[in-house]
């Protein structure tokens, strides 16, 4: 078994128009910028993007949106100081937004990966974001029914991988990577370093290789001390 792809272009080559794609990261930490660049070059459009943020400036998800390649975005915090690409296309109605509280976003993705059909959560009860959703009182507390979020692809960033797809992350860049890896039909991990099978401490593996289909080594843009 060898999940190593030689390039990100090869890893994203089969992404079809209309695909749903989870993209890891919080702020800039853990965002697989190079994998998004490969997706931009590949050309798939009408995409549904599931990510915490909607990108800033003119790179990453913002670039994808700016090129008109995104139909819908599912995220918790699209509006940021420099989220011009999102703001414009959202206000013009070209882009559909499903706004999800951050913890519900993580848990809905986790549920998809774990085969959970739906779950009741206290988050958002009585707010605009729970309007129209089924609720239930359990043990004296009010809950909202939330459904899983799965995707066709996940693009995530980790620190190290082995050819079996086992992943180790770095600091707060871990964020959504481990849950997204479980919830996509095809998880593509870009990593700073690929090591030999046996070189990752099994006690320290965060994402077991069963959740990962493709691994691509990408030279990190900053020191990893």
């Amino acid at each position: 078994m060898n999940k190593i792809c030689h390039s990100l272009g090869e890893a994203v080559a089969d992404v079809p128009d209309g695909a749903s794609i989870m993209i890891g990261g919080f702020g800039d930490a853990g965002v697989p910028f190079e994998a998004i660049d490969a997706l931009i070059a590949q050309g798939a459009k009408e995409l549904t993007i599931i990510s915490n943020n909607a990108g800033t400036g003119d790179q990453g998800i913002a670039a994808l949106i700016g090129l008109g390649r995104v139909r819908k975005i599912v995220c918790s915090f699209p509006r940021q100081a420099d989220s011009k690409a999102f703001d414009e296309r959202y206000l013009s109605g070209e882009l559909t937004l499903e706004l999800v509280p951050q913890g519900n976003l993580a848990e809905r993705i986790r549920a998809a990966g774990a085969g959970i059909g739906a779950f009741f959560t206290p988050t958002g009860y009585g707010t605009l974001l729970a309007e129209g959703k089924e609720t239930r009182e359990i043990g004296g507390r009010n809950y909202v029914l939330e459904y899983p979020i799965a995707a066709d692809y996940a693009l995530i960033k980790a620190d190290r991988a082995d050819p079996l797809g086992n992943l180790v992350y770095r600091k707060t860049a871990r964020n959504f990577g481990p849950v997204m890896a479980t919830a996509a039909a095809c998880t593509i991990a870009q990593v700073a370093e690929v090591v030999a099978v046996g070189d990752l401490d099994p006690e320290a593996v965060v994402t077991p290789g069963i959740f990962v289909k493709r691994v691509v080594a990408v030279k990190p843009d900053h020191p990893r001390a």
Binding site: R79, Y90, P101, T123
Partner: peptide
């Protein structure tokens, strides 16, 4: 207003 919620609702009950 362009909505953004982040972790606010989770923190409020959390």
């Amino acid at each position: 207003a362009i909505p953004a919620v982040g972790g606010a609702m989770d923190l409020a009950i959390g």
